[in-house]
Design a protein around this nucleic acid. Structure first.
Lengths: 201, 201
DNA sequence: CACCATACGGAGGGTCGCCTCCGTTTGCAA
DNA sequence: TTGCAAACGGAGGCGACCCTCCGTATGGTG
């Protein structure tokens, strides 16, 4: 899965194919990337409602150019989002070799940095566009096996659904942490909440 | 503490005194309350950037009236927020009679419904106005003893700070839950993350 | 009942972001 | 080098929201 580099090909089921859209001409391609970077930045700072004109400005590009590449705000938004999701899915593959709990925990840590920087973008998980649905599915496909494996091995609570876990862990970084040590502490608590509780005694 | 009803009096340290501002004339008072209710609703739905004109409309009141009562957006915002915080503080007092862990858990559950409905309002925890600082302090004063008690009794992790706990639990409801059963499940995990882990074996 | 301080409403001027449209520029293929 | 399809940029019209200002309405008191 996870269409990682330019070598296209829609792997298994619902791959994301961000590359379908990428323009051909050199300058256009350049601007496309600049816009994407600017947007990522702007969304992270100002939230979903970042000004499109500001994004164009950051990218050093006319507003018209922005609209040519991304006809709607949603388009731009989705492109940024899809990039993130792909990276996240790739991470799942890379962690697959670790012991069950470590793989899950590692991936969730990665998930946290994903939501941490892109807090704004996560707001869109509610919205209902087909792209978001696809991304959601991609995340599930990538992460759920990790949870299941951890559950089967007896490390993770059997009653926890994948969605439960994402909500618990994702919520942690809803507000930015000034202190990375604190983030670590809170994250540990969250992960412990997912683990099976040894019988008290 | 907790200036609960109209009987004023700034209790201990930094009480909140929402009542200082409440207008005198009957119609004014009525509109004030209507605006507050409308704002609570609007902020919960549309986030911090809800339109003031919309709030006035919801309240069935002219925009001028809104501005007379709440000269700045921040004023309105703070008033809603303060109301919430007061209720939350009151809850802490009411739970004080329970066993240590139950009191903490109960209060945190209350805290969750508070952040759940008022998600938007919580965004402001970052902002730095004196009112928000005071509220933050009030929440601490109300909730921290519950945590400490739970820790002293050996039920809660000793290394968890009060802020850690709020972030963990508050984050849970960052995104609305369609299914209350799921909320309960996730919340349980979060609370378990705060509890001391019995030694594995 | 009469008076007036208090409160109401909403028109309107200003700002800002959205998006379209079109004259100009530029990559690139022949 | 030349030509044209592709891409660029930004002026400008539009709508949403902000906030002020002032003529009108009204509660409450004497």
């Amino acid at each position: 899965m996870t269409t990682a580099d330019g070598t296209a090909g829609s792997g298994g089921g619902g791959t994301l194919d961000v590359f379908a859209r990428r323009p051909k001409r050199a300058d256009a391609r350049r601007n496309y990337e600049k816009l994407l970077a600017a947007a990522r930045e702007a969304f992270a700072e100002a939230g979903v409602s970042a000004s499109l004109e500001d994004i164009a400005r950051r990218a050093g590009v006319g507003i018209g150019t922005l609209y040519r590449h991304f006809p709607t705000r949603q388009d731009l938004f989705e492109s940024v989002y899809v990039d993130e999701v792909e990276a996240l899915c790739r991470a799942a593959d890379e962690l697959a070799g670790l012991p069950p709990w470590d793989a899950l925990a590692g991936w969730l840590r990665r998930f946290v940095t994903y939501t941490a920087t892109k807090r704004a973008i996560a707001e869109a998980l509610n919205h209902d566009s087909s792209v978001f649905a696809t991304c959601r599915k991609a995340i599930n496909t990538a992460g759920e096996p990790l949870l299941r494996r951890a559950q089967d091995s007896g490390a993770a609570r059997p009653e926890a659904s994948f969605d439960d876990v994402l909500r618990l862990v994702g919520g942690v970084t809803m507000y930015p942490f000034a202190d990375p040590v604190q983030l670590e502490r809170v994250l540990t608590m969250a992960l412990d909440g997912i683990r099976v509780r040894p019988a008290a005694g």
